[in-house]
Amino acid sequence: MKIVLFDHSFEGLLSAVFEVFHLKLKEAKLIGQNNHTASFFDEEIWVSTDQEKAARVAKGIVKVGGKSDLTWLYRCFLSELAEVPQLILEYIRQLMVDKHSGKNDFSRNVVIQLQKINKMIGREKHRMDAFVRFEKTADGLYFAGIAPDFNVLPLNAKHFKNRYADQHWCIYDVKRDYGLLYNLESLRHVHLPSVNANLHSTPSNLLAEDEVAYKKLWKNYFESTNIQERANKKLHTQHVPKRYWKYLSEKYILDY
């Protein structure tokens, strides 16, 4: 068994796939470099990221499976799960051998596993669309920290750009330490060294004057719209699992 290592980028992963095909490796295992523990028996190959090779693999996938296949694999990749590179390799292999097979063959294990991961990604992306809570800062920026299970922020970009086209906003992934900043014109990646890892921890002197008042109004609305007679704790936590409560200012006890 050959262990093929890459640098955790999507292009790196595709470059590694390229090498597997190029070297005609029958039995290869694709692993992100940080997830690998060296063992005595396996032979390791380190593949450096090569944009050209990655582009060739991407082109091949699009040619056989269509553009949607490539997006689908990219979404699965964003899960950062250790087993995903291998699944992607297996999927591409199958795709190249049997050109009719695709991501809709629900009778195959690889497909079912990747579909499952894709669904998890979709759900997490959608949750971020829903649970982001902007705080308006004193200088007019709408800021929100997030800490999603998977690296879905790139998938959220379009949604927020379309929606908040007339306000300055920033969504920051505190777990992965990068964010998206929108300046009415375009989006860019930012790294803010001073961001606190706790959500909703912006000191109140940095907030806009009416920010706390609106937070309170929102919490007030949230409580008034509940129907006591229909209380259903189980359903509630099913929709909003506890790990997401940290996003929701309406579930906080406000201590301003």
Partner: peptide
Amino acid sequence: KGLGDSSGMGICHTYTADG
């Protein structure tokens, strides 16, 4: 470049205690 967009799927922003 106005505010808002409602062309996508619906979004539930939170859930009350009655689910």
